[in-house]
Every structure is written in structure tokens, then in C-alpha cells.
Design a protein around this nucleic acid. Structure first.
Lengths: 238, 238
DNA sequence: GCGTGACCAAATGTCTAAATTGGTCACGCA
DNA sequence: TGCGTGACCAATTTAGACATTTGGTCACGC
């Protein structure tokens, strides 16, 4: 005699949607957007092809939501890290954490590099902006910089726009891995994450460390931003 | 009554080679490697097609030398800047200068980003390394870091390999321009160069400024490295 | 009434003939 | 005599007609 609920409406439907997304994710990472067919996704999710279209209107919309989901999970994981240790809300540490999360997720990396092999038509949305922009990465970064500035966690001598661009470029550079160092000689992802963190810290954080109360206050706001971004990404399709 | 020299052997031949290279450069930047034909190059240089092959054995070799030439000119321009002002030999300033030179040269940018649209088959040499590696960018960077370290112009608390990777990644990130900031909102190339310079300076240079004598001594060595690299790139084809 | 797979138009892939192109070389002009 | 040339050739690329696949729909049946 468990609690009553409608036998198979919301719950089962949701579970099915997740099975579809899981199949789509696997296939996208393995084959790339163009090679993945709705038929194959349906087969792997053990449902009919038409059923996929009960959830998403087109293939594009399905995969776009998948990317939002993926990006949302990265943000979520970073948020969890901040919850565990407020220091991770500091610019260098936070960017380091983003890198670490992305380095473990092929799709997240593809989003950030705009990898056309994986993303195919998704790499260049109709708007002309990059996928990362489409997913609100720029907005989130801008908000974060605002919070950091208001708490003195980044230098005030440099305009916010410059700091945004700096963090963006440095992160992108580390994720793509540069161009000079041969692949074989590169360090481990964790070590590269440390280098990235140090670079961002040196570039935008003030020389004097801030007191813990400030960090806690800022961390709360950072966490709020991350959580809001995550929710916006993971929930409904726009 | 000018000085005597053999009427039309070395000189005229050299001038012709430069006309060919100039035509090849224009066409490569405008059309990309695959679309450029030897016929068109010959037409623009106002010579016969076979003549091109008196200078270079294959299309690949011709364009490879073109890229070496282009990269050599960037290095040369940077060297000139160092000659005019020794301070430009400092890590942050030097990288800033490289960026400025590259931002004015489409081909140099293509080399650094590995742009397959422009470079075509040249983007991935048989060795599997990137074009930039092929042109000795990694070697040059490593030597520069060595010189900087020996003069205390970069921190000693971080391994040289880490500094090389950091500079490489940051430079690459700024040249590609990041992924979050919309194209339209981006700052001018010169301003971005400043941001890059500041980032590299903050990431690898020691906090206390060094005395001028040290800078002069280091600048001489940096200049020697640049000049040697430039000579190796501009002269004979390997 | 929800899920399905046959169905359709559009996109993609395949195959082959025609055209282009990298590279060579016998010739002619200086 | 020898440097420069463009006709020439093999090999690759392109074009386009045809076959296949795929995104998306919908009438049917469980």
C-alpha cells in the first residue's frame, strides 16, 4: 500500500525521456551528430521511432536539449564543489574546476571547442553565435565577474569586459591545449587544470588574499548563480 | 657605373622566386590551399607553369616554404621590436608582440590556429604534428623560456615545461579569441594584445621588477634566438 | 488513447563519365 | 647552349544522374 500516484503518466514518461537522452548522448559522443539517426536512438532506447517525436519536435531540438543538459551537469558539478569548499568560488579555482569537469566529458569539451566533427550542424546555430554562447556561457561568466568584482575578489583596475575576455580566452586556450606542445608530452588533465587555475588567478585576482567572511559571502552568491544557471539549463527546453 | 655583378643569374632568379611566393601568398589567403592551382600562380607571376617547378619540386614544398617565410617574417618583426626597445624581450611584452604581428597577417594566424580551411593538407603534416610545431614554434618557445629563466625574468617556482605550456595555451586562446564573447563585442586587436601580455606577465613573471642591466643582457640573448630562428626559417628550404 | 512502424519527401551517398590539376619534358627562343 | 615554356599525361576531383537513407508524419491497432 504505497502512496497513490497516477500509474504511468509523468514518471514513466520522464524515465523514457532519460533513456532516449542517454542513448543520444552515447551515440553523439561516439559517432557525431550527422551519423546518429533517430532510428538508432529509438532502437537503443527500445522504443518506436515515432515515440522520440512525442518528446522532441525535431532532431535538432533533441540534441540541443542534450547539450543544455550536458552543460548543466558541468555547472551542477562545479556548484557541488563550491558547496563542499567555499574557496572554490574564487575565480582561479572556479575556472580550474570547470576545466576538470569538462576534461572528463567529451561532449562538454566539444561544446567548448565548437568541435564540428561531433556537433555537426549544431556547432553553428542559426543565430551565428557559437554553441557556448547559445547555452548562456557568456552571460554566466559576466554575472560571475560582477559578483567577484563586488566582493573584491578580482582586480578593479581592469574593466569587467576585459576580465571576461581574458578568462574566456585563457580557458579556451587550455581546453584546446595550445598548438606548440606535442600531444605526447602534455601533462595530465589535472595538472593542466592547476596551471589554468594559476594563470586565471594571477591575471585577475588581487595580490592580497581576502578574508574568509568575504569569501563565504561571495561563495553564496556564486552558488546562487550556478544553481540558477543549472536549473535553467536542465529544466524545460527553453 | 654601378658595381659589376652577373647580369641575370642569382638576382633575377631570386626576384622571380619572390614574385611566385607573393602570388602564392595572396591566393592562399584568399582561396585556401586546395583551390589554389599552380597554373593560377604562374599566371599571376607572369611566367610559365613549368618555371614554378624550377624553384620547387612540388606544390606542397612551395607552400611549406611560404609558411616558413611567413612565420619567419613574424619572428623578424618581433626581433625588430626588441631591437628598438629591450623591454619587449620580457615574456609578457614579447608574447604581446607576437600576437600583434599575427593579428595583421591572415596566414600567420592560420598557422597558429591550424585553420584547415586555409591550410588544407598542410594543416596536418605527415609527421602528425601541427604546422606550428613543424615550423619550430615549440623549440623557439622552449629556448626563450630557458633564457628568461636563466636571467630570472620568469618565476623559478614553476617548472619550465609548465611555463611553456601555459604561454602556449594562453597565446592560442587569445588568437582564437575564446568562445563566449560574441564577435561583435570583442575589443580591438591591440587591446586584446595588451590583455594577453598582461596575462602572460602575471602568470610567469616574478612579482619584483628586474634591473635594467639584466633586461639588456637577456634581450641580447632573446634577440640572438629570434634572429637565428628567423634565419633558419627564411633561408633555404630545410 | 498512447505508442508504433509503414510511409513520404528531402537529404545524402554512390557510381561513372567528364573535366581539372599536379607534375614532366621535348621544343624553341635568346 | 641552356633557360623558360606550354602541350601533354596520369591521377585526382568534380558533376550529375540514380539509388539509398533519414527526418518527420500519421493512420492504425494494442
Amino acid at each position: 500500500m504505497s502512496t497513490k500516484h497516477i500509474p504511468d503518466s509523468g514518471d514513466a514518461e520522464r524515465e523514457r525521456a532519460e533513456r532516449i537522452l542517454a542513448a543520444a548522448r552515447e551515440l553523439l559522443a561516439a559517432w557525431g551528430y550527422k551519423r546518429v539517426t533517430i532510428d538508432e536512438i529509438a532502437r537503443r532506447a527500445r522504443i518506436g521511432k515515432g515515440t522520440v517525436y512525442l518528446h522532441w519536435k525535431t532532431k535538432q531540438v533533441l540534441f540541443t536539449e542534450l547539450l543544455r543538459h550536458e552543460f548543466g551537469e558541468v555547472i551542477g558539478a562545479v556548484a557541488e564543489s563550491v558547496e563542499k569548499d567555499v574557496v572554490i568560488a574564487l575565480p582561479g579555482r572556479l575556472v580550474r574546476e570547470v576545466f576538470r569537469q569538462q576534461s572528463r566529458r567529451p561532449l562538454a569539451r566539444a561544446i567548448h571547442t565548437g568541435d564540428t566533427d561531433v556537433l555537426g550542424a549544431l556547432a553553428a546555430p542559426a543565430s551565428g553565435r557559437s554553441v557556448a554562447q547559445e547555452l548562456g556561457f557568456h552571460d554566466l561568466l559576466a554575472r560571475l565577474v560582477d559578483v567577484w568584482r563586488s566582493h573584491g575578489l578580482v582586480t578593479r583596475t581592469m574593466p569587467a569586459a576585459d576580465q571576461i575576455h581574458t578568462i574566456d580566452a585563457v580557458l579556451a586556450g587550455f581546453i584546446t591545449g595550445g598548438v606548440a606542445v606535442p600531444e605526447g608530452e602534455a601533462a595530465s588533465p589535472d595538472h593542466r587544470a592547476d596551471l589554468l587555475g594559476h594563470t586565471v588567478e594571477a591575471a585577475v585576482e588581487p595580490p592580497v588574499p581576502v578574508d574568509e567572511a568575504t569569501v563565504r559571502a561571495a561563495a553564496a552568491e556564486v552558488l546562487a548563480l550556478l544553481t540558477a544557471a543549472r536549473r535553467a539549463l536542465t529544466s524545460g527546453p527553453r
